[in-house]
Design a protein around this nucleic acid. Sequence first.
DNA 1: CCCCCTTCGTGAACGCGTGCACAAGCGGGC
DNA 2: GCCCGCTTGTGCACGCGTTCACGAAGGGGG
Lengths: 252, 252
Amino acid sequence: MARRAPRPAGATLPAPGGPRRIPDAAVARLGTYHRVLTDALAAGSCTVSSEQLAGLAGVNASQVRKDLSYLGPTGTLGVGYDVEHLLGRIGVELGLTRHWPVVIVGAGNLGRALANYRGLAARGFVVAGLVDADPTKVGRTVGGLAVEPLEALEGLIAERRVRIGVIATPASAAQEVADRLVAAGVRAILNFAPAPVGVPPGVSVRKVDLALELQVLSYHQVRATTRTRGDGTHPRRAAAPALRPDPRGAGR
Amino acid sequence: MARRAPRPAGATLPAPGGPRRIPDAAVARLGTYHRVLTDALAAGSCTVSSEQLAGLAGVNASQVRKDLSYLGPTGTLGVGYDVEHLLGRIGVELGLTRHWPVVIVGAGNLGRALANYRGLAARGFVVAGLVDADPTKVGRTVGGLAVEPLEALEGLIAERRVRIGVIATPASAAQEVADRLVAAGVRAILNFAPAPVGVPPGVSVRKVDLALELQVLSYHQVRATTRTRGDGTHPRRAAAPALRPDPRGAGR
DNA sequence: CCCCCTTCGTGAACGCGTGCACAAGCGGGC
DNA sequence: GCCCGCTTGTGCACGCGTTCACGAAGGGGG
Ligand SMILES: NC(=O)c1ccc[n+]([C@@H]2O[C@H](COP(=O)([O-])OP(=O)(O)OC[C@H]3O[C@@H](n4cnc5c(N)ncnc54)[C@H](O)[C@@H]3O)[C@@H](O)[C@H]2O)c1
Ligand SMILES: NC(=O)c1ccc[n+]([C@@H]2O[C@H](COP(=O)([O-])OP(=O)(O)OC[C@H]3O[C@@H](n4cnc5c(N)ncnc54)[C@H](O)[C@@H]3O)[C@@H](O)[C@H]2O)c1
């Protein structure tokens, strides 16, 4: 119950009247649920239990229920969750019911790969623009989209109502690009350049650093070889239960 | 010091007295420090303070000191950290002193971008192989490397001592590819496919899901527009202090 | 109509990661 | 040679995220 939870007074700053704030980690998992539920629906499932959903998403079942509880009561006791309803619920909360125009800055290896990535459109993100500072790159067509000059950035953002920007330039240009994006009205930035970018409050930034991921793996390797055997540092799920068309009837 | 720490037998798995276990979050930041320190060294800095390093990496100064403390005493009181020494220390801990051969599975948009990515070699990761199941892709040269058939995967891994694998195939093939990688001796996997992969204990997996990142940003946008003004949810750093060739002498 | 089985939703405990504050210690200046 | 200021390293507390365990509630079968 308690759709809007009773806030124990004394919270520092977390917007006292907020309906319900969902932690980033949970939001990310909700996105995963949305994807696997889409598959499940296509496969003919009408309802799923938290246990099944957990298996598909590769997380704990308690985690699933906790995450979904942020959306309010969405399941049916004794039955599970209605796939279609749950999809709609998550979609509304995450803003996946509308299309988000995205601008990609930098038409290099990564920028072009992103522009070609069909997984974006599938989640409601449409690449509304792809710009590059290099004149020799301008005019090239990638993924059905023509590369536009860097000067077109501001006009493009305003005209196409772009709110999300992707930085795929060298690190040295990241901050400058971010500043221009924000000045032009972008409110959320996904940064692939290995450089921290500062933005004014109210603008969200997320960073993806590939080399960093590999370095963490490298560290694990060093640890594993130093110590005789790999310890149980990574208790990843053992096996994924297959997607089952009929969600019920799993005799136990 | 205690380079090789006394292992108190009987620990469940958290190995209380283990050499020193570094949490993943800290390992990732150490990687960042390593990168910015490399730049700082090139720029002529001999020593840096935790405050300066924090500015360059975009994190808290306390965080920097806490992270570096995992390496043991590395700084000089009243002075700061010797850049060269610290680089070496982090490099050893993260295994960046050697070259890590990496195999990339899937020569699509993403796989090719990765193979072309110079940032990998700069961190000590060399793409030792790039394989694809599509015969029409085999033989193509990308980043000075020829695409090899999927059948060559096992031989390639064994021959070139590959320990790290990257999955850049469609989600449907992710688990199968992961199984083959592990069976062939790979002990760490970076997974770009939006599907959870299960691996036996002792193998590390990290997942990067681009669409998920955008969905989190999308959620922030929805929140920001619903509530009148963006709250202070993202207290990102305000400004980055410029890299200073002479680290000392900041008279204050 | 009642009972049992299933499954959600959540309160509470645990562990981790983060940020603060301070004592200890080293270098430079006088 | 001594003192002062600067910076590290860390103990501590707080808040968040994750997991366990259980009460509540609905459906199906007898
Ligand atoms: N290639 C990868 O797989 C990969 C993976 C992870 C991260 N990254 C990071 O992503 C960024 C791009 O990587 P890449 O491999 O595509 O590099 P790239 O050199 O192939 O492409 C960079 C592009 O940005 C353009 N550019 C430069 N300055 C610009 C500016 N101020 N405004 C607009 N465009 C500008 C360049 O003309 C170039 O086309 C880099 O920071 C890299 O570290 C790349
Ligand atoms: N393109 C991007 O920017 C991007 C970004 C994030 C995530 N991803 C994910 O990365 C993966 C690859 O994306 P992409 O855009 O490169 O797709 P893609 O279709 O361009 O490339 C996939 C490649 O994998 C090959 N392949 C298929 N099955 C294989 C198998 N069993 N073994 C080896 N190779 C196989 C295909 O022949 C193809 O060349 C996808 O899962 C996608 O969701 C892509």
